[in-house]
């Protein structure tokens, strides 16, 4: 990394380790992970399946407690989930018994009816679900369900979003569309985003920085800055060069 972090970190992960005791031994999932994420930054955490990157995100999100180390957000230690930072799950994160409107408005129970309705309408439109306000999740496609979950998250105006392989269960075409949608939404709503993925291309397309994780126990192998301006040209030499760096870092030959 060439650039020094000047602004104070939004999210600060400090020497995080996590061990699960099992019947015979303990499994180490995370091993002294430290990372600083700046305000408004989009950081992809890239690693093979089962490496512990999801565990890391769950600790940062406040759902799991680390064995040692701590997570600070705005300088305050994370002790549990908080509506200022919303988690978007891989699938089945939306409430199936609520309509699109009901889901988007789920976190808005502290607001008055008028403001609630206004916010719902705004975010339904933002994620492109206009016309589906009274549809139930089971009537939506996989891509639409993920849009819905993103809308539900944005509606409470959080300043951090945690996305745990949010497009992992979608087909490759929908996935590509969803990525450009996410970047569009990000331009509209400045958020700090931690995005967990096992997809190298996804990370190069989205991230300001890519954090490459090792296999279990997860440690940070390398942090790669993606210095391509948006919109990113997926056939530019720089894109391919950065992708190759990540391929190599993950330990894959880029020939099949």
């Amino acid at each position: 990394m060439g650039v020094r972090v000047v602004t104070p970190a939004k999210v600060s992960i400090r020497d995080l380790s996590m061990r699960f005791p099992t019947d015979r031994s303990t499994i180490e999932v995370l091993s002294s992970v430290s990372l600083e994420v700046k305000d408004g930054e989009l950081v992809c955490i890239l690693g093979p399946s089962g490496c512990g990157k999801s565990t890391l995100l769950n600790v940062v999100g406040g759902f799991l407690k680390a064995t040692t180390g701590e997570v600070l957000i705005d300088g305050q230690a994370v002790t549990g989930p908080d509506p200022r930072r919303i988690f978007v799950f891989q699938e089945r994160g939306v409430f199936p018994w609520l309509t699109v409107e009901g889901n988007v408005g789920f976190g808005l129970f502290r607001l008055g009816a008028a403001e609630r309705a206004e916010r719902i309408a705004h975010y339904v439109k933002l994620v492109g679900l206009s016309g589906f306000e009274s549809a139930y999740p089971q009537e939506l496609s996989g891509g639409m369900k993920q849009r819905l979950e993103v809308a539900r998250a944005l509606a409470v105006n959080p300043d951090v979003l945690f996305l745990d392989e949010p497009f992992g269960a979608l087909d490759s075409i929908t996935r590509l569309v969803m990525r450009s949608e996410l970047l569009r939404i990000r331009r509209a709503e400045k958020k700090t985003i931690l995005f967990v993925t096992h997809d190298i291309d996804e990370s190069v397309q989205l991230a300001d920085r890519v954090v490459v994780m090792s296999t279990r126990p997860a440690t940070i192998r390398r942090i790669v800055e993606i210095d391509i301006p948006h919109p990113r040209d997926l056939s530019s030499p720089r894109y391919i060069a950065l992708r190759d760096i990540l391929f190599e870092e993950i330990g894959l030959a880029h020939k099949i």
């Binding site: 999100g61 759902f63 549990g80 989930p81 908080d82 509506p83 919303i86 988690f87 799950f89 089945r92 994160g93 409430f95 018994w97 609520l98 789920f106 976190g107 129970f109 409470v156």
Partner: peptide, 28 residues
């Protein structure tokens, strides 16, 4: 599902509200 409980918690629901707005409809 854990995912739904976590989602409910994430939005800052108190225990009674979580019971009424997530657990009851999910179990219905």
């Amino acid at each position: 599902p854990t995912t739904l409980l976590r989602a409910g918690r994430n939005f800052g629901l108190s225990n009674p509200r979580l019971l009424r707005n997530v657990i009851l409809p999910a179990a219905l």
